[in-house]
Amino acid sequence: MAVPVLDPPLDRPVPAVTPRRRPVRWPGAALAVPAALAVLLLVVATAAPLLAPHGAADGSLTGRLLGPGAPGHPLGTDGQGRDLLSRLLLGARPSLVGGLLPVLAATVLGTALGIAAGLGGRATEQALLRSLDVLYAFPGILLAIAVATVLTPGLTATVLSLSVVLTPAVTRVAHTEVRRIRAAEYLEAARVSGAGRGAVAVRQVLPVVAPVVLAYASSLVGLAVVYAAGLSFLGLGVAPPAPEWGAMLDELRPALLTRPELAVLPALAILAVSVVFNALGEALRRRVGVREELR
């Protein structure tokens, strides 16, 4: 599956370049298609309560595990007799929140830390990077489980734990980009003309770092959705009967033998979102011209 790896770009000196405005181009299909699909997903997630034919918790034990095409249930019902189409639609929101919010948080925090490390002098740089290395020592999903376990299960726990997992990776990307430009003449010029550190960071450095980080971050959404689903699957995410794709996958797992056509539906939804956001990240990355060797 197309899941980006959390390995950071290598820390190595790159020749300094000055930023320049890239000419605006009409994005190709490689960007337009995943972008449109991502927007569509967000629209579906937002409008789910209007689209879903049934409530998320509605159903009866007498209509359990009905196959796709059952009257009134185009995709069938789950183990509690609840409409699967409705639950997949209504589950889009928590599933996407679980995927997007941690990425957003990690992007903001990681960019700030990366710039601080890059501009803050050798001691600050070493302190920040080495403490993030500690987090890197753990496989991402294990770290997420460890953090989620000490919190009360729920969407908040998912968002917080995934934010912790994703931040170091974003920090590395931001830091590498800062290192690339920090000796640049225009930064020196800004400093000489009296700009403070904060001003340099915000006005000169951020505009260079942001596009690269955003491109990288969008490729993390797919991973975060899969991780969020994994946490719900383990009972550390949303509480029943809330529909969330990972939790739905767990609920339907016992039916894998008897009703495989139902049990795979949430997995397909997770896969679809992961693919869309990976493609989007990839397209964005190409567009801002992040060189392959950085990956």
């Binding site: 918790a57 509690q80 299960p153 509480a239 029943p240 009967p241």
Partner: peptide, 22 residues
């Protein structure tokens, strides 16, 4: 969990909203 969810739904039908914490 499935049994608790069934109980949860029956309780909700009479107005008792029980949050399940696993």
């Amino acid at each position: 969990v499935p049994i608790a969810e069934a109980v949860q739904r029956d309780l909700a039908a009479v107005g008792i909203r029980a949050e399940i914490r696993t």
